[in-house]
Design a protein around this nucleic acid. Sequence first.
DNA 1: GATAGAATTAAACGAACGTTCAAGCAAGAG
DNA 2: CTCTTGCTTGAACGTTCGTTTAATTCTATC
Lengths: 213, 213
Amino acid sequence: MPKTGQIQDPASTRQRILDAAEELFADHGFDGVSIRQITARAGVELALANYHFGPKQDLFVAVITRRADALNSERRRLLESLPEPPTVEGLIDAFSRPFLEKSVHGGPGWKSYARLIAQTANAARWTRDIMTAQFDPIAEAFLAGMRRALPHAGEEDLYWGFHFLVGAMTLMFAETGRIDALSGGRFRAGDLERIHARLIPFMAAGYRALAQA
Amino acid sequence: MPKTGQIQDPASTRQRILDAAEELFADHGFDGVSIRQITARAGVELALANYHFGPKQDLFVAVITRRADALNSERRRLLESLPEPPTVEGLIDAFSRPFLEKSVHGGPGWKSYARLIAQTANAARWTRDIMTAQFDPIAEAFLAGMRRALPHAGEEDLYWGFHFLVGAMTLMFAETGRIDALSGGRFRAGDLERIHARLIPFMAAGYRALAQA
DNA sequence: GATAGAATTAAACGAACGTTCAAGCAAGAG
DNA sequence: CTCTTGCTTGAACGTTCGTTTAATTCTATC
Protein backbone atom coordinates (compact mmCIF):
# COMPACT_ATOMS: atom_id res chain seq x y z
CA MET A 1 0.00 0.00 0.00
CA PRO A 2 1.39 3.39 -1.01
CA LYS A 3 2.31 5.98 1.56
CA THR A 4 0.93 9.35 2.50
CA GLY A 5 1.33 11.47 -0.62
CA GLN A 6 1.49 14.74 1.28
CA ILE A 7 0.83 17.83 -0.77
CA GLN A 8 2.61 20.81 0.71
CA ASP A 9 2.45 23.21 -2.20
CA PRO A 10 2.59 22.56 -5.93
CA ALA A 11 4.37 25.84 -6.61
CA SER A 12 6.99 24.98 -4.02
CA THR A 13 7.57 21.62 -5.68
CA ARG A 14 8.11 23.31 -9.02
CA GLN A 15 10.57 25.79 -7.57
CA ARG A 16 12.54 23.16 -5.69
CA ILE A 17 12.93 21.17 -8.89
CA LEU A 18 13.99 24.27 -10.80
CA ASP A 19 16.52 25.23 -8.11
CA ALA A 20 18.05 21.78 -8.01
CA ALA A 21 18.13 21.51 -11.79
CA GLU A 22 19.72 24.94 -12.09
CA GLU A 23 22.58 24.11 -9.78
CA LEU A 24 23.22 20.66 -11.20
CA PHE A 25 22.96 21.71 -14.85
CA ALA A 26 25.38 24.54 -14.13
CA ASP A 27 27.91 22.20 -12.57
CA HIS A 28 27.69 19.19 -14.89
CA GLY A 29 25.86 20.22 -18.04
CA PHE A 30 22.61 19.01 -19.51
CA ASP A 31 23.77 15.47 -20.23
CA GLY A 32 25.86 15.21 -17.09
CA VAL A 33 22.85 15.28 -14.80
CA SER A 34 20.05 12.75 -14.46
CA ILE A 35 16.49 13.53 -13.52
CA ARG A 36 16.99 11.20 -10.59
CA GLN A 37 19.82 13.40 -9.29
CA ILE A 38 17.69 16.51 -9.70
CA THR A 39 14.63 15.16 -7.92
CA ALA A 40 16.78 13.64 -5.20
CA ARG A 41 18.40 17.00 -4.50
CA ALA A 42 15.02 18.71 -4.63
CA GLY A 43 13.65 16.16 -2.17
CA VAL A 44 10.77 15.14 -4.39
CA GLU A 45 9.78 11.99 -6.20
CA LEU A 46 11.29 11.14 -9.58
CA ALA A 47 8.08 11.29 -11.56
CA LEU A 48 7.24 14.80 -10.39
CA ALA A 49 9.82 16.34 -12.70
CA ASN A 50 8.10 14.87 -15.71
CA TYR A 51 4.65 15.71 -14.34
CA HIS A 52 5.40 19.39 -13.85
CA PHE A 53 7.80 20.10 -16.69
CA GLY A 54 7.47 17.34 -19.25
CA PRO A 55 10.60 15.92 -20.91
CA LYS A 56 14.09 16.74 -19.67
CA GLN A 57 14.69 19.28 -22.43
CA ASP A 58 11.63 21.25 -21.39
CA LEU A 59 12.89 21.34 -17.83
CA PHE A 60 16.16 22.77 -19.08
CA VAL A 61 14.32 25.44 -21.04
CA ALA A 62 12.27 26.28 -17.95
CA VAL A 63 15.47 26.76 -15.95
CA ILE A 64 16.96 29.08 -18.55
CA THR A 65 13.86 31.19 -19.06
CA ARG A 66 12.94 31.56 -15.39
CA ARG A 67 15.53 34.23 -14.63
CA ALA A 68 15.93 35.63 -18.13
CA ASP A 69 12.85 37.83 -17.89
CA ALA A 70 13.85 39.52 -14.66
CA LEU A 71 17.35 40.05 -16.00
CA ASN A 72 16.36 41.51 -19.36
CA SER A 73 13.59 43.74 -18.07
CA GLU A 74 16.05 45.32 -15.66
CA ARG A 75 18.56 45.70 -18.49
CA ARG A 76 15.93 47.34 -20.65
CA ARG A 77 14.90 49.69 -17.87
CA LEU A 78 18.48 50.86 -17.43
CA LEU A 79 19.05 51.19 -21.17
CA GLU A 80 15.96 53.34 -21.54
CA SER A 81 16.95 55.59 -18.65
CA LEU A 82 20.22 56.60 -20.33
CA PRO A 83 20.62 60.13 -21.71
CA GLU A 84 20.30 60.71 -25.43
CA PRO A 85 22.67 60.07 -27.00
CA PRO A 86 23.94 57.54 -24.46
CA THR A 87 27.60 57.23 -23.53
CA VAL A 88 29.61 54.11 -24.25
CA GLU A 89 30.24 53.62 -20.55
CA GLY A 90 26.57 54.05 -19.74
CA LEU A 91 25.56 51.41 -22.27
CA ILE A 92 28.06 48.86 -21.04
CA ASP A 93 27.04 49.51 -17.46
CA ALA A 94 23.35 49.20 -18.22
CA PHE A 95 23.99 45.94 -20.03
CA SER A 96 26.21 44.38 -17.37
CA ARG A 97 25.06 45.80 -14.05
CA PRO A 98 21.86 43.78 -13.66
CA PHE A 99 23.80 40.55 -13.83
CA LEU A 100 26.34 41.98 -11.41
CA GLU A 101 23.70 43.00 -8.88
CA LYS A 102 21.86 39.69 -9.11
CA SER A 103 25.10 37.75 -8.82
CA VAL A 104 26.23 39.63 -5.74
CA HIS A 105 22.94 40.19 -3.91
CA GLY A 106 20.47 37.90 -5.63
CA GLY A 107 21.22 34.69 -3.79
CA PRO A 108 23.15 31.56 -4.74
CA GLY A 109 20.74 30.63 -7.51
CA TRP A 110 21.96 33.53 -9.61
CA LYS A 111 25.55 32.31 -9.39
CA SER A 112 24.49 28.92 -10.66
CA TYR A 113 22.50 30.63 -13.37
CA ALA A 114 25.56 32.59 -14.48
CA ARG A 115 27.61 29.41 -14.80
CA LEU A 116 24.77 27.78 -16.68
CA ILE A 117 24.48 30.68 -19.12
CA ALA A 118 28.23 30.66 -19.70
CA GLN A 119 28.38 27.04 -20.61
CA THR A 120 25.18 27.18 -22.66
CA ALA A 121 26.30 30.23 -24.65
CA ASN A 122 29.65 28.67 -25.51
CA ALA A 123 28.21 25.29 -26.47
CA ALA A 124 27.34 24.46 -30.04
CA ARG A 125 24.07 22.62 -29.60
CA TRP A 126 20.29 22.89 -29.51
CA THR A 127 20.61 24.88 -26.30
CA ARG A 128 22.02 27.79 -28.26
CA ASP A 129 18.64 28.44 -29.85
CA ILE A 130 17.17 29.00 -26.41
CA MET A 131 19.84 31.56 -25.66
CA THR A 132 19.20 33.38 -28.92
CA ALA A 133 15.48 33.60 -28.27
CA GLN A 134 16.03 34.84 -24.73
CA PHE A 135 18.84 37.32 -25.15
CA ASP A 136 18.89 38.57 -28.73
CA PRO A 137 16.14 41.18 -28.28
CA ILE A 138 18.04 42.96 -25.53
CA ALA A 139 21.21 42.68 -27.58
CA GLU A 140 19.48 44.56 -30.38
CA ALA A 141 18.58 47.34 -27.98
CA PHE A 142 22.18 47.54 -26.77
CA LEU A 143 23.48 47.69 -30.32
CA ALA A 144 21.02 50.40 -31.25
CA GLY A 145 22.22 52.47 -28.33
CA MET A 146 25.86 51.97 -29.25
CA ARG A 147 25.05 53.02 -32.79
CA ARG A 148 23.93 56.38 -31.41
CA ALA A 149 26.80 56.64 -28.94
CA LEU A 150 29.39 56.06 -31.66
CA PRO A 151 27.77 57.41 -34.82
CA HIS A 152 31.04 57.25 -36.75
CA ALA A 153 31.72 53.61 -35.99
CA GLY A 154 31.26 51.01 -38.69
CA GLU A 155 28.48 48.50 -38.36
CA GLU A 156 30.90 45.59 -38.29
CA ASP A 157 32.88 47.21 -35.49
CA LEU A 158 29.73 47.51 -33.40
CA TYR A 159 28.87 43.85 -33.80
CA TRP A 160 32.30 42.41 -33.09
CA GLY A 161 32.80 44.81 -30.22
CA PHE A 162 29.60 43.47 -28.75
CA HIS A 163 30.90 39.95 -29.30
CA PHE A 164 34.08 40.73 -27.35
CA LEU A 165 32.04 42.29 -24.55
CA VAL A 166 29.75 39.28 -24.29
CA GLY A 167 32.67 36.87 -24.25
CA ALA A 168 34.39 38.74 -21.45
CA MET A 169 31.19 39.16 -19.44
CA THR A 170 30.29 35.53 -19.81
CA LEU A 171 33.62 34.32 -18.51
CA MET A 172 33.61 36.93 -15.77
CA PHE A 173 30.21 36.04 -14.32
CA ALA A 174 30.88 32.31 -14.64
CA GLU A 175 33.47 32.71 -11.86
CA THR A 176 35.51 29.79 -13.11
CA GLY A 177 38.40 30.51 -10.76
CA ARG A 178 40.94 30.56 -13.54
CA ILE A 179 42.52 33.80 -12.36
CA ASP A 180 42.49 32.58 -8.77
CA ALA A 181 44.80 29.75 -9.74
CA LEU A 182 46.85 31.83 -12.15
CA SER A 183 47.50 34.60 -9.63
CA GLY A 184 48.18 32.22 -6.78
CA GLY A 185 45.06 33.38 -4.97
CA ARG A 186 45.95 37.07 -5.06
CA PHE A 187 42.85 37.87 -7.15
CA ARG A 188 39.55 36.13 -6.88
CA ALA A 189 36.74 35.53 -9.35
CA GLY A 190 34.24 36.31 -6.60
CA ASP A 191 35.31 39.97 -6.43
CA LEU A 192 32.79 40.83 -9.09
CA GLU A 193 32.61 44.52 -8.22
CA ARG A 194 36.37 44.92 -8.64
CA ILE A 195 36.25 43.15 -11.98
CA HIS A 196 33.21 45.08 -13.13
CA ALA A 197 34.92 48.37 -12.27
CA ARG A 198 37.59 47.39 -14.78
CA LEU A 199 35.27 45.88 -17.36
CA ILE A 200 33.60 49.19 -18.15
CA PRO A 201 36.65 51.35 -18.95
CA PHE A 202 38.32 48.39 -20.66
CA MET A 203 35.44 47.71 -23.03
CA ALA A 204 34.66 51.38 -23.57
CA ALA A 205 38.23 52.05 -24.65
CA GLY A 206 38.07 49.04 -26.96
CA TYR A 207 34.90 50.28 -28.60
CA ARG A 208 36.34 53.74 -29.09
CA ALA A 209 39.52 52.32 -30.62
CA LEU A 210 37.44 50.49 -33.21
CA ALA A 211 35.31 53.56 -33.92
CA GLN A 212 38.34 55.76 -34.52
CA ALA A 213 40.26 53.33 -36.69
CA MET B 1 33.84 -17.97 -35.89
CA PRO B 2 35.03 -14.34 -35.69
CA LYS B 3 35.79 -12.35 -38.78
CA THR B 4 38.98 -10.96 -40.23
CA GLY B 5 40.29 -8.54 -37.61
CA GLN B 6 42.33 -6.57 -40.09
CA ILE B 7 45.09 -4.48 -38.63
CA GLN B 8 45.78 -1.53 -40.86
CA ASP B 9 47.81 0.66 -38.53
CA PRO B 10 47.58 1.08 -34.78
CA ALA B 11 48.56 4.74 -34.98
CA SER B 12 45.86 5.33 -37.56
CA THR B 13 43.28 3.70 -35.32
CA ARG B 14 44.28 5.95 -32.46
CA GLN B 15 44.06 9.07 -34.62
CA ARG B 16 40.68 8.14 -36.06
CA ILE B 17 39.31 7.68 -32.57
CA LEU B 18 40.79 11.00 -31.46
CA ASP B 19 39.39 12.80 -34.50
CA ALA B 20 35.91 11.39 -34.01
CA ALA B 21 35.98 12.07 -30.27
CA GLU B 22 37.17 15.62 -30.85
CA GLU B 23 34.31 16.49 -33.17
CA LEU B 24 31.63 14.78 -31.11
CA PHE B 25 32.83 16.13 -27.78
CA ALA B 26 32.90 19.62 -29.29
CA ASP B 27 29.35 19.33 -30.54
CA HIS B 28 27.68 17.58 -27.63
CA GLY B 29 29.97 17.75 -24.61
CA PHE B 30 31.65 15.01 -22.64
CA ASP B 31 28.46 13.48 -21.28
CA GLY B 32 26.50 14.01 -24.46
CA VAL B 33 28.56 11.52 -26.42
CA SER B 34 28.87 7.77 -25.97
CA ILE B 35 31.92 5.71 -26.74
CA ARG B 36 29.73 3.79 -29.15
CA GLN B 37 29.06 6.97 -31.13
CA ILE B 38 32.76 7.80 -31.19
CA THR B 39 33.92 4.40 -32.36
CA ALA B 40 31.11 4.19 -34.89
CA ARG B 41 32.15 7.51 -36.44
CA ALA B 42 35.78 6.44 -36.36
CA GLY B 43 34.86 3.21 -38.11
CA VAL B 44 36.44 0.99 -35.47
CA GLU B 45 35.15 -1.48 -32.94
CA LEU B 46 33.77 -0.34 -29.61
CA ALA B 47 36.38 -1.97 -27.42
CA LEU B 48 39.27 -0.31 -29.24
CA ALA B 49 38.63 3.01 -27.55
CA ASN B 50 39.14 1.47 -24.15
CA TYR B 51 42.10 -0.58 -25.34
CA HIS B 52 44.02 2.40 -26.70
CA PHE B 53 42.99 5.15 -24.29
CA GLY B 54 41.56 3.53 -21.18
CA PRO B 55 38.45 5.02 -19.53
CA LYS B 56 36.36 7.69 -21.23
CA GLN B 57 37.86 10.48 -19.15
CA ASP B 58 41.35 9.56 -20.31
CA LEU B 59 40.20 9.71 -23.90
CA PHE B 60 38.87 13.20 -23.28
CA VAL B 61 42.20 14.26 -21.79
CA ALA B 62 44.00 12.80 -24.79
CA VAL B 63 41.82 14.87 -27.12
CA ILE B 64 42.52 18.08 -25.22
CA THR B 65 46.25 17.57 -24.90
CA ARG B 66 46.87 16.41 -28.47
CA ARG B 67 46.72 19.88 -30.01
CA ALA B 68 47.67 21.90 -26.93
CA ASP B 69 51.37 21.29 -27.35
CA ALA B 70 51.52 22.47 -30.96
CA LEU B 71 49.45 25.51 -30.07
CA ASN B 72 51.44 26.57 -27.05
CA SER B 73 54.87 25.98 -28.53
CA GLU B 74 53.94 28.26 -31.42
CA ARG B 75 52.62 30.83 -28.98
CA ARG B 76 55.82 30.68 -27.00
CA ARG B 77 57.92 31.02 -30.11
CA LEU B 78 56.07 34.18 -31.12
CA LEU B 79 56.19 35.60 -27.59
CA GLU B 80 59.95 35.10 -27.42
CA SER B 81 60.50 36.72 -30.80
CA LEU B 82 58.95 40.01 -29.66
CA PRO B 83 61.18 43.07 -29.09
CA GLU B 84 62.11 44.06 -25.57
CA PRO B 85 60.05 45.54 -24.11
CA PRO B 86 57.21 44.09 -26.16
CA THR B 87 54.24 46.14 -27.33
CA VAL B 88 50.72 45.48 -26.14
CA GLU B 89 49.61 44.76 -29.68
CA GLY B 90 52.53 42.41 -30.25
CA LEU B 91 51.69 40.41 -27.14
CA ILE B 92 48.02 40.04 -28.01
CA ASP B 93 48.90 39.04 -31.54
CA ALA B 94 51.45 36.48 -30.41
CA PHE B 95 48.93 35.02 -28.01
CA SER B 96 46.02 34.85 -30.44
CA ARG B 97 47.54 34.36 -33.89
CA PRO B 98 48.49 30.68 -33.55
CA PHE B 99 44.88 29.75 -32.86
CA LEU B 100 43.80 31.96 -35.74
CA GLU B 101 46.20 30.33 -38.19
CA LYS B 102 45.32 26.82 -37.09
CA SER B 103 41.62 27.58 -37.25
CA VAL B 104 41.81 29.01 -40.75
CA HIS B 105 44.44 26.78 -42.35
CA GLY B 106 44.85 23.87 -39.96
CA GLY B 107 41.98 21.73 -41.15
CA PRO B 108 38.53 21.02 -39.72
CA GLY B 109 39.88 19.33 -36.62
CA TRP B 110 41.12 22.65 -35.32
CA LYS B 111 37.66 24.19 -35.57
CA SER B 112 36.24 21.35 -33.52
CA TYR B 113 39.08 21.80 -31.08
CA ALA B 114 38.25 25.49 -30.67
CA ARG B 115 34.62 24.70 -29.86
CA LEU B 116 35.77 22.05 -27.43
CA ILE B 117 38.16 24.42 -25.67
CA ALA B 118 35.45 27.07 -25.41
CA GLN B 119 32.97 24.81 -23.75
CA THR B 120 35.57 23.19 -21.53
CA ALA B 121 36.99 26.52 -20.35
CA ASN B 122 33.58 27.88 -19.45
CA ALA B 123 32.40 24.76 -17.66
CA ALA B 124 32.81 24.35 -13.93
CA ARG B 125 33.89 20.74 -13.71
CA TRP B 126 36.82 18.36 -13.51
CA THR B 127 37.67 19.27 -17.09
CA ARG B 128 38.78 22.70 -15.92
CA ASP B 129 41.82 21.19 -14.23
CA ILE B 130 42.98 19.84 -17.57
CA MET B 131 42.70 23.31 -19.08
CA THR B 132 44.68 24.84 -16.24
CA ALA B 133 47.48 22.35 -16.61
CA GLN B 134 47.64 22.82 -20.36
CA PHE B 135 47.29 26.58 -20.73
CA ASP B 136 48.40 28.25 -17.51
CA PRO B 137 52.13 28.13 -18.27
CA ILE B 138 51.73 30.08 -21.50
CA ALA B 139 49.39 32.47 -19.72
CA GLU B 140 52.16 33.22 -17.25
CA ALA B 141 54.51 34.05 -20.11
CA PHE B 142 51.92 36.37 -21.63
CA LEU B 143 51.36 38.13 -18.31
CA ALA B 144 55.07 38.55 -17.79
CA GLY B 145 55.35 40.20 -21.17
CA MET B 146 52.42 42.51 -20.48
CA ARG B 147 54.04 43.46 -17.19
CA ARG B 148 57.02 44.75 -19.15
CA ALA B 149 54.89 46.36 -21.87
CA LEU B 150 52.85 48.30 -19.32
CA PRO B 151 55.22 48.81 -16.39
CA HIS B 152 52.91 51.33 -14.73
CA ALA B 153 49.85 49.08 -14.78
CA GLY B 154 48.66 47.52 -11.55
CA GLU B 155 48.95 43.80 -11.09
CA GLU B 156 45.21 43.39 -10.75
CA ASP B 157 44.62 45.26 -13.99
CA LEU B 158 46.93 42.89 -15.83
CA TYR B 159 45.12 39.81 -14.59
CA TRP B 160 41.58 40.97 -15.25
CA GLY B 161 42.59 42.37 -18.62
CA PHE B 162 43.89 38.95 -19.47
CA HIS B 163 40.61 37.48 -18.30
CA PHE B 164 38.66 39.76 -20.64
CA LEU B 165 40.95 38.86 -23.52
CA VAL B 166 40.57 35.15 -22.93
CA GLY B 167 36.80 35.42 -22.70
CA ALA B 168 36.56 37.30 -25.97
CA MET B 169 39.02 35.00 -27.75
CA THR B 170 37.25 31.90 -26.54
CA LEU B 171 33.89 33.02 -27.81
CA MET B 172 35.43 34.27 -31.05
CA PHE B 173 37.17 31.03 -31.97
CA ALA B 174 34.20 28.93 -30.91
CA GLU B 175 32.33 30.36 -33.92
CA THR B 176 28.99 29.96 -32.24
CA GLY B 177 27.17 31.92 -34.94
CA ARG B 178 25.56 34.27 -32.45
CA ILE B 179 26.50 37.37 -34.44
CA ASP B 180 25.39 35.72 -37.66
CA ALA B 181 21.86 35.49 -36.32
CA LEU B 182 21.99 38.87 -34.59
CA SER B 183 23.17 40.71 -37.68
CA GLY B 184 20.82 38.88 -40.01
CA GLY B 185 23.74 37.20 -41.75
CA ARG B 186 25.59 40.42 -42.53
CA PHE B 187 28.58 39.36 -40.42
CA ARG B 188 29.80 35.83 -40.00
CA ALA B 189 31.65 34.02 -37.25
CA GLY B 190 33.77 32.30 -39.88
CA ASP B 191 35.45 35.56 -40.92
CA LEU B 192 38.11 35.03 -38.30
CA GLU B 193 40.66 37.32 -39.91
CA ARG B 194 38.23 40.24 -39.92
CA ILE B 195 37.39 39.63 -36.28
CA HIS B 196 41.02 39.18 -35.32
CA ALA B 197 41.93 42.46 -37.02
CA ARG B 198 39.52 44.12 -34.57
CA LEU B 199 40.43 42.04 -31.54
CA ILE B 200 43.96 43.41 -31.34
CA PRO B 201 43.25 47.17 -31.28
CA PHE B 202 40.18 46.59 -29.13
CA MET B 203 42.03 44.65 -26.46
CA ALA B 204 45.13 46.83 -26.64
CA ALA B 205 43.07 49.95 -26.02
CA GLY B 206 41.32 48.23 -23.14
CA TYR B 207 44.62 47.29 -21.53
CA ARG B 208 45.95 50.82 -21.91
CA ALA B 209 42.81 52.30 -20.40
CA LEU B 210 43.32 50.15 -17.31
CA ALA B 211 47.01 51.02 -17.10
CA GLN B 212 46.33 54.75 -17.24
CA ALA B 213 43.50 54.82 -14.74
C1' DG C 1 57.89 -21.55 -40.48
C1' DA C 2 57.20 -21.48 -35.58
C1' DT C 3 56.44 -18.28 -31.76
C1' DA C 4 55.43 -14.11 -28.89
C1' DG C 5 53.12 -10.00 -28.34
C1' DA C 6 50.25 -6.40 -29.98
C1' DA C 7 45.90 -5.34 -32.05
C1' DT C 8 41.20 -6.48 -33.14
C1' DT C 9 36.74 -8.71 -32.72
C1' DA C 10 32.24 -10.12 -30.86
C1' DA C 11 29.65 -10.71 -26.99
C1' DA C 12 28.26 -9.91 -22.52
C1' DC C 13 28.07 -7.67 -17.73
C1' DG C 14 25.53 -4.86 -14.27
C1' DA C 15 24.11 -0.20 -13.72
C1' DA C 16 21.83 3.84 -14.83
C1' DC C 17 19.04 6.31 -18.04
C1' DG C 18 14.29 8.96 -19.52
C1' DT C 19 9.77 8.05 -19.50
C1' DT C 20 5.27 5.97 -18.41
C1' DC C 21 1.53 4.07 -15.69
C1' DA C 22 -1.96 2.78 -12.37
C1' DA C 23 -3.15 3.61 -7.92
C1' DG C 24 -3.44 6.56 -3.71
C1' DC C 25 -4.06 10.93 -1.44
C1' DA C 26 -5.53 15.90 -0.43
C1' DA C 27 -8.66 19.62 -1.00
C1' DG C 28 -12.44 22.35 -2.83
C1' DA C 29 -17.29 22.33 -5.05
C1' DG C 30 -21.87 20.84 -5.08
C1' DC D 1 -21.17 13.50 2.47
C1' DT D 2 -19.89 12.67 -2.47
C1' DC D 3 -17.45 13.65 -6.27
C1' DT D 4 -14.13 15.71 -9.17
C1' DT D 5 -9.68 17.43 -9.95
C1' DG D 6 -4.88 18.05 -9.27
C1' DC D 7 -0.87 16.34 -7.12
C1' DT D 8 1.92 12.59 -5.47
C1' DT D 9 3.70 7.93 -5.06
C1' DG D 10 6.07 3.56 -6.10
C1' DA D 11 7.13 0.53 -9.49
C1' DA D 12 8.08 -0.81 -13.90
C1' DC D 13 9.12 -0.37 -18.99
C1' DG D 14 12.69 -0.88 -22.66
C1' DT D 15 17.06 1.28 -23.94
C1' DT D 16 21.61 2.69 -23.63
C1' DC D 17 25.61 3.34 -21.00
C1' DG D 18 31.00 2.32 -19.77
C1' DT D 19 33.66 -1.39 -19.16
C1' DT D 20 35.41 -6.16 -19.34
C1' DT D 21 36.35 -10.67 -21.12
C1' DA D 22 37.95 -14.44 -24.06
C1' DA D 23 38.93 -15.72 -28.41
C1' DT D 24 41.03 -14.56 -32.85
C1' DT D 25 44.11 -12.32 -36.21
C1' DC D 26 47.96 -9.82 -37.62
C1' DT D 27 52.94 -8.43 -37.36
C1' DA D 28 57.51 -8.92 -36.22
C1' DT D 29 61.58 -11.62 -34.69
C1' DC D 30 64.21 -15.58 -34.62
